[in-house]
């Protein structure tokens, strides 16, 4: 029996109006453009792609921080655009986000204890303050901080330590889904491994689903069941993480994989990278045809004219002319 997805995103569009001046021509950044994917319960969907391709925007639209310009997002079968009252409040509890920037996302005037406790108070989920306090201590331990850190302020912590405070805060209300926006990129490897193992074990225990945004493909491959590759607002390839890693179909995925820095000096210093020439396109003024056509080593004339549609290739979905029949 096939399960229903916990998150179902269809043809999602999130645009920003960046028009300057009253009489200027309208300028729109299509940060997320026609993106569709499913996340199953208990599953981790990894999202990778170039800086500025729209990963954070996609994550923020899913947690309802941004209003979509089109398409739909269903969480547990309900269209999140239509949620009101109690349903909206429970959505805000079930769907949490860990932010990319551990500096900007923590209130500098609150202690670590207050930061982690705040969502518990907002959602009124523990009986009294003592219970909340106990849970805060437990959460700090889970994320590898010390109980006496509770009374310190964010400024007294290093980047990596601050990210763990953000994770503790997201876990504070026992969510069902966490959008993890680059949660480990600021951490050093021994702690990355701990956090990834932590996220995995929390997932097993509590049955959580993750949208895991990262640029470290090795780690994304490790943690994710499925991987989606974004380019210029579009999802260009999507499939089981092993398949995508071992036999990338889209030329952009291939280039991305060739640029992974390998932790071995002889290999790293000699490894040839597929250099992407051509103009890096702007999302304000995306190229005609395939979004990758300006840099794609395999582009044909058709690629500059027609926009490739998502095609199913085995278990994979890829948007590239090379696979059209």
């Amino acid at each position: 029996m096939s399960e229903n997805p916990i998150l179902r995103v269809r043809n999602l569009k999130t645009y920003f109006d960046v028009t300057k001046g009253l009489f200027a021509q309208k300028q729109i950044v299509k940060a997320v453009d026609d993106v569709s994917f499913d996340v199953m319960p208990n599953e981790t969907f990894g999202l990778v792609g170039e800086s500025g391709c729209g990963k954070t925007t996609l994550g923020r639209t899913i947690v309802k921080l941004y209003e979509p310009a089109g398409g739909s997002i269903e969480f547990e079968g309900r269209d999140i655009a239509k949620l009101k009252g109690k349903e909206l409040i429970s959505f805000r509890k079930d769907m949490q986000m860990i932010f990319q920037d551990p500096y900007a996302s923590l209130n500098p005037r609150m202690t670590v204890g207050e930061i982690v406790k705040e969502p518990m108070i907002i959602h009124n989920i523990y009986a009294n303050d003592q219970e909340r306090e106990d849970r805060v201590v437990e959460l700090l331990k889970i994320v590898g901080l010390k109980p006496d850190h509770i009374r310190r302020y964010p400024a007294e912590f290093s980047g990596g330590q601050r990210q763990r405070i953000g994770i503790a805060r997201a876990l504070a209300v026992n969510p069902k889904f966490i959008v993890c926006d680059e949660p480990i990129s600021a951490l050093d490897v021994s702690i990355q491994a701990q956090v990834v193992n932590l996220l995995e074990s929390i997932q097993k225990e509590m049955g959580l689903s993750y949208l895991f945004i990262a640029h470290d493909l090795s780690m994304v491959k490790h943690i994710s069941d499925k991987i989606g590759v974004m380019y210029l607002g579009h999802m260009v390839e999507m499939g089981d993480s092993n398949d995508v890693y071992h036999s990338p179909l889209h030329p952009y995925t291939t280039a991305l994989l060739s640029a992974i820095p390998i932790p071995d000096p002889d290999i790293a210093k000699s490894k040839a990278r597929i250099v992407l020439g051509g103009e890096i396109p702007s999302p304000i003024n995306p190229p005609a045809g395939c979004p990758f056509s300006t840099r794609c080593p395999k582009a044909t004339e058709r690629c500059h004219k027609e926009t490739p549609k998502p095609i199913q290739v085995g278990n994979r979905i890829v948007s590239c002319m090379l696979y059209e029949k």
Binding site: I191, A193, V196, N197, L217, M219, K221, H222
Partner: peptide
Amino acid sequence: GLLNCVANPEDDEDKPLEPI
């Protein structure tokens, strides 16, 4: 220990990471 807890993308992922 540090060298042992890096995710090697060539490895099969069911192998858990070995954090310090």
